[in-house]
């Protein structure tokens, strides 16, 4: 099973010629699309962090009506086909959609803009962040919060000083997961923003227009860059976790 998971990736790298890989590295269009993927995924992850953290906390700590329902609704973006997610977003953020019109008045459009890319990435990837962080908040004994309160901390101060640092490493894990999922998103993005092309869309464009040999170098390059960045993040995270204990 492990080989099945690993082999396709290794194979892609092996059959890519070095010269085509080098030319891909210096292809400005390729550079831009990889940068754009990482950048938009980064923004999507930042939004997931800012809005998802409070939601994860509330879901972990509070009891309220329909909590279970809300909880299972969060899974929906993960469960549905991503083209479906894209179309659903289009009906809301498109020119005719309610939110599309609202943002339009602020001169923000989603069709074929980086806002569209970010929205699509956020929709499909933030559940990963929320679930990871929620789980970690659930593992933190609420009595830490209680003790902080008796020592004079307001609820928000107790959160910032105690629960936030305790959940920090899982926020990093959740953010990595979220970011990775956002980078790899294709289906929802292509419906909202075919242009400017993020890496996964550029690969698709080249594959459709020029064939496999044209798509290969970009594919391999994307694998390399992604793996390198993840290794670096994991190393930093492990170090941080050790110090933190």
């Amino acid at each position: 099973m492990f080989l099945f998971l690993l082999f396709p990736i290794v194979n892609v790298i092996l059959i890519t010629s070095t010269s085509s890989l080098v030319s891909a590295i210096f292809d400005p269009q390729v550079q831009f699309s990889i940068f754009l993927s990482f950048y938009t995924a980064g923004i999507a992850t930042l939004i997931a962090f800012l809005l998802g953290t409070p939601l994860a906390y509330v879901l972990a700590r509070r009891n309220f009506p329909f909590k279970e329902t809300i909880d299972s609704l969060i899974d929906i973006p993960i469960l549905i086909p991503h083209t479906v997610a894209g179309i659903a977003l289009l009906t809301l953020f498109g020119e005719a959609g309610i939110l599309g019109q609202m943002f339009n008045s602020m001169n923000i459009r989603f069709i074929d803009t980086i806002f569209g890319i970010i929205i699509a990435q956020l929709f499909v990837s933030s559940p990963f962040y929320i679930k990871t962080v929620r789980e970690s908040f659930e593992k933190i004994d609420p009595r830490y919060h209680n003790v902080a309160r008796t020592l004079g901390a307001t609820p928000s101060k107790a959160f910032i000083k105690v629960e936030f640092p305790l959940a920090a490493h899982s926020m990093v894990s959740g953010a990595i997961l979220c970011w990775a999922r956002a980078i790899s998103e294709f289906g929802a993005v292509i419906i909202l923003a075919y242009y400017p092309p993020i890496a996964s869309i550029l690969i698709y464009q080249r594959f459709v227009s020029y064939g496999l040999s044209s798509a290969l170098p970009v594919t391999t390059l994307l694998i390399f860059v992604t793996v390198i960045i993840f290794v670096i993040i994991r190393l930093v995270q492990t170090k941080f976790q050790e110090e933190y204990k």
């Binding site: 209680n146 003790v147 008796t150 901390a153 105690v162």
Partner: peptide
Amino acid sequence: PERRNVGFVYQDYMLF
């Protein structure tokens, strides 16, 4: 609780 000025020690101490 933050305005009651009470000290609280739990069974397993809950040190941060």
